[in-house]
Computed example of a mutant assay.
Amino acid sequence: MKYSREELEEAKRQIDSTLHKLRETIKTFEAKEEKARYKSQITLAKRRVKAFEIANYFIEEAMEK
């Protein structure tokens, strides 16, 4: 599929925003007193961060072409 530059830029902007929110969520959970209680949420958020970083990589690659 081909996407316009504008579509790619908007997708990247949305992913960057979500990444920021996820990273803040991780910080919040890790700062809790009972950190172990939030282990599954922290793991899920970290996996999502990785997935969005991969998506961002491919968007940037597509924008360079």
Results as ranks from 00 to 15, higher is better:
Met1Ile: 06
Tyr3Glu: 04
Ser4Ala: 03
Ser4Pro: 04
Ser4His: 06
Ser4Val: 04
Glu6Ala: 15
Glu6Leu: 12
Leu8Asn: 02
Glu10Asn: 10
Ala11Cys: 03
Arg13Thr: 05
Gln14Phe: 04
Asp16Thr: 07
Ser17Met: 09
Ser17Cys: 06
Leu19Glu: 03
Lys21Asp: 15
Lys21Gly: 12
Lys21Ser: 15
Leu22Gly: 08
Leu22Glu: 08
Leu22Thr: 06
Arg23His: 07
Arg23Thr: 04
Glu24Leu: 09
Lys27Gly: 09
Thr28Trp: 05
Phe29Asp: 07
Ala31His: 14
Ala31Phe: 10
Ala31Asn: 15
Lys32Ser: 15
Lys32Ala: 15
Glu33Ile: 12
Glu33Lys: 10
Glu34Trp: 07
Glu34Ile: 06
Glu34Tyr: 11
Tyr38Trp: 14
Tyr38Leu: 07
Lys39Ser: 14
Ser40Val: 11
Ser40Leu: 08
Thr43Gly: 00
Lys46Asp: 00
Arg47Val: 01
Arg48Ser: 13
Arg48Asp: 08
Lys50Pro: 00
Lys50Asn: 07
Ala51Cys: 06
Ala51Leu: 15
Ala51His: 12
Phe52Thr: 04
Phe52Glu: 07
Glu53Asp: 09
Glu53Ile: 12
Glu53Met: 14
Ile54His: 02
Ile54Asp: 08
Ile54Phe: 05
Ile54Gln: 07
Ala55Tyr: 00
Ala55Cys: 04
Ala55Asp: 03
Tyr57Asp: 02
Phe58Ser: 02
Phe58Asn: 11
Phe58Trp: 12
Glu60Leu: 03
Ala62Val: 05
Glu64Met: 03
Lys65Gln: 04
